[in-house]
Design a protein around this nucleic acid. Structure first.
Lengths: 356, 356
DNA sequence: CCCACTGTTGACAACGTTGTCCAGGTTCTA
DNA sequence: TAGAACCTGGACAACGTTGTCAACAGTGGG
């Protein structure tokens, strides 16, 4: 039939109504006032005498009434909730981003609905559309795909969208990125400055914008130093430990020109590379994109290009709420700087023979 | 022009209605059919001819219609969303739990709304009640406080609640815990088996259930070995690096009986302790509760009592959905086993003088 | 030809809330 | 004392969807 996305509510569930919830009508009846008066009390609107308010409050607590925000949302048109779609909630890089967005949402009295796309564009789409159906006021998205035309009806209807970490496929949306190109270039330049000439690059899949940007930074740094790049030193692909391990070992043992240093394209790759290097007979310098917890305590300590994931999230969410508050200036593209954190790897244990 | 702005939900926000969203009514008008027919098509209900369905589908895509789930929720009484409240979304221990709950929710066609309580009972309550107002179908809570009577009206109305990681203050709710007592006892026993007699315990604040359970495990292991516990070896309190550092240093240098080993009560404490020990002149054994990423690569590698955070989340969410599907058996209390992961610390570098 | 039946379709009420508007009553002003 | 201005409170109609039920056309049997 059609490619109708699976609708959450279409899952058949029994509806055990232990007891119907009290509504404003019930409260009104018990307090002996009109419906609207209850509404006024609940919302702290003026125009209710202290005595009436007291009666209503009493009825509310007696009945255990709690306003039904679904009805409220329907009536008001705003949900006071925003959506966040990212790759993996559990990834140490995205978790702080998630938290930062939540914090900003909280400051604005909004709730956060979120989900993981698992780097699958179809799943991203499904999630985003589910959020749209819930009529979230705004959306922060770490895009998995690059075609977001399906969002156009939504944005036309007033949905605010901010892409973060990677650009999305909607020119009309704000975007918050790290300086992936510059960061990678700086990291590779750091290795070059310490005498390395043959440097391997292991990154994420080429369809991911950050992966290609970082690779671009790697090439720029090499070119700036006048160093040739053997294509066997470059590998983009899935970040599964198996692949990364294989690629790292291949580059480290490659004939005729094994690399003396590695630049790793994100936190997962770096973690695997550290494991490989820990058992490797020859010292190899390593600089990684993304900081790791306890990276300072590893042997050797890992030099990294750190992104501020929380700041990415905060900036994106701030931007989103500014839009929700009415800012309709041209879409922005914010680029946050990265920071080189030198921790010894690269200079404490540089490859002994710096030649070639 | 007059209806350009509308009032907000909780905070005053202008409401720029770029264009009103099309509703089923609009779709029906365009397709030249009745409202209910559109509803049928949208929900895949039977009883619509292929020809009519086609006309409706066409109108839907032409108008960019998307069903408003708020209205649907109001009508149906179920939101197909669940809430998750935990301490900190960004904590490496809770992030996988979050992800696991999301995954289960997704399998059940539900969305996940979540928030961090920041270990503040008032904030937890605020969050939980906001979720109740949204009429989430169920709630997974890592309790910050121990009084959850405020939830009683909700559970009476059919809200399913599962506490995870720590027991909550509602006897009627399911609870999923790790074997904190047994895990800590095993970890401390491991240290004792390697000759340690003076072992320090640094844990989280005493009002947190897991902290006291783990301390109980520590005492049990010491008692089982017939070892006395000097109260200067025990410290419960905030897990801020400053405090942990100070306590660790105090125990390590204490007169007349410095500890030769430390048992740390959770991942944050362990991380700080590792930093302290890395600079400490004397080798000190360390076993920590909770695994750390890259813990195997630290020097010395850290032996841990690992909890499966994802499994905690999965179990809790499974339990929740079983309740939502009608299971009304007696509340369960599930206790998941922990796993001792021996990584060298404790035996590779035992305190040299094992005496006293 | 009528009747019962099936299959398709739409009119209408409800879900629980808030915005609009108007009815009373009270107090202040002229 | 009339009139205006204000305060309090309630009736009612939306918001967009789905459940109920009835209308209607077409079909086959008697």
């Amino acid at each position: 039939m059609s490619d109708r996305t699976r609708s959450p509510l279409s899952i058949p569930l029994p509806r055990p109504r232990y007891g119907a919830r009290p509504t404003m009508k019930d409260v009104a009846a018990r307090a002996g006032v009109g419906l609207k008066t209850v509404s006024r009390v609940v919302n702290g609107e003026p125009g209710v005498t202290a005595e009436t308010e007291h009666r209503v409050q009493e009825a509310i607590t007696a009945l255990g009434f709690r306003r039904n925000d679904s009805a409220r949302v329907l009536r008001k048109g705003r949900t006071a909730s925003i959506g966040l779609v990212l790759e993996d909630l559990a990834d140490p890089f995205y978790a702080p981003l998630n938290r930062a967005v939540e914090e900003v949402a909280r400051d604005h009295g909004a709730l956060l609905i979120n989900g993981s796309s698992a780097e699958d564009p179809a799943r991203e789409r499904e999630l985003v559309l589910a959020l749209c159906a819930r009529r979230v006021d705004g959306l922060v998205v770490v895009p998995a795909g690059d075609d977001h035309r399906y969002l156009e009806p939504e944005t036309a209807a007033g949905l605010a969208t901010v892409f973060v970490d990677r650009p999305g496929g909607l020119t009309a949306a704000d975007t918050v990125l790290s300086d992936n190109f510059g960061g990678a270039r700086e990291g590779v330049a750091h290795l070059i400055a310490h005498g390395h000439r043959r440097i391997g690059f292991i990154g994420d899949q080429p369809r991911i914008h950050t992966a290609t940007e970082r690779l671009r930074g790697y090439r720029a740094a090499m070119a700036a130093a006048g160093l040739p790049v053997d294509e066997s030193w470059v590998s983009l692909g899935p970040t599964s430990p198996d692949r990364v391990r294989a690629e790292a070992e291949r580059m480290l043992t490659g004939r005729p020109s094994p690399v003396t240093a590695l630049f790793t394209g994100n936190n997962r790759v770096t973690a695997t590379a550290v494991r490989v290097l820990a058992r490797f007979p020859r010292p190899v310098a390593l600089v990684g994109f993304d900081d790791l917890e306890l990276a300072d305590l590893l042997t050797p300590a890992v030099t990294v290009i750190a992104q501020d994931a929380a700041q990415l999230g905060r900036t994106a969410a701030d931007l989103l709420f500014r839009r929700l508050e009415g800012d309709d200036s041209a879409p922005q593209r914010v680029e946050l700087p990265t920071r080189l954190i030198v921790r010894g790897s690269g200079e404490l244990r540089p490859a002994p023979g710096t030649a070639l």
